[in-house]
């Protein structure tokens, strides 16, 4: 497809920011924003230009229950009593609580067991709320010793950061790292025995933002960006 002229891109960016670009065109344009930093920059310029239109809009104080819900959904309340010290910077219980509440928010998480004849079965799709396409698809080998991860719409990432995939084992104290996610294309993540066991017992996976090379502590240190449901592969007898 030929690239539209800068003038047309800017006109689309303007209509996107104003909100009049709707329907499938809006979703297509959102994919473009994620894929192209120049398009994203044009949209940002328009958001900057237009924000002053709000100047006359009355401010409204939200009812108290709104913040209580936000606290619950982000698990920010459990922070207050926490101790900071020699322990790794992640609080496993908080991570799990956060993961559990986030799980409720993740729209578009779809999972299904693939056709039994396939070697690879789709185990989970990791998608942001509102996303029109999943960020990554996670497929699992039936022997469950390898994951195939495809970056479909991975979010932008600073050069010194990486996305790390974790298995959230029900009832366990800490998530188990499954490896680093690709920004583009496909990656194979080989699972060791501990990871295999963890994944078999996990009902969810999560993605956190980590320093390059992955979490230095072996537990998530950055914010949890995504949580998705996962199911173990179907038994080969079926």
């Amino acid at each position: 497809m030929r690239d539209p002229s800068p003038e047309l891109i800017d006109a689309l960016a303007a209509e996107y920011a104003v909100g009049t670009l709707r329907g499938p065109a809006r979703r297509r344009f959102e994919r473009w924003i994620r894929a192209r930093s120049d398009v994203a920059a044009r949209v940002r310029r328009w958001e900057d230009r237009l924000v002053g239109l709000l100047a006359g809009v009355a401010t409204v104080r939200p009812s108290p229950r709104v913040w209580r819900e936000i606290e619950l959904r982000t698990s920010t309340r459990v922070r207050t009593g926490e101790t900071v010290g020699a322990r790794p910077s992640v609080r496993p219980m908080r991570f799990l609580a956060l993961a559990a509440t986030l799980a409720a928010l993740v729209f578009g998480v779809s999972l299904y067991l693939a056709d039994a004849r396939r070697t690879w079965e789709l185990a989970a799709e990791i998608a942001a709320p509102q996303a029109t396409a999943p960020a990554w698809s996670i497929e699992i080998d039936r022997r469950a010793d390898e994951l195939r991860v495809r970056a479909m719409n991975a979010p932008a990432l600073a050069a010194d950061r990486e996305h790390e995939l974790w298995a959230l084992v029900d009832g366990a104290a800490a998530p188990v790292s499954l490896g680093l996610l690709p920004q583009a294309g496909e990656a194979r993540l080989t699972l060791g025995p501990a990871q295999r066991t963890a994944l078999a017992r996990a009902s969810k996976v999560a993605v956190s933002l980590e320093p390059r090379g992955g979490s230095p502590t072996g537990a998530p240190t950055g914010p949890v960006l995504f949580v998705a449901d996962v199911r173990p592969p179907r038994h080969s007898s079926t």
């Binding site: 709000l54 809009v57 009355a58 401010t59 409204v60 104080r61 939200p62 709104v66 913040w67």
Partner: peptide, 9 residues
């Protein structure tokens, strides 16, 4: 939040 709620309303 007051500004954002005004905008959302």
């Amino acid at each position: 939040s007051p500004t954002l709620l005004g905008c959302l309303l």
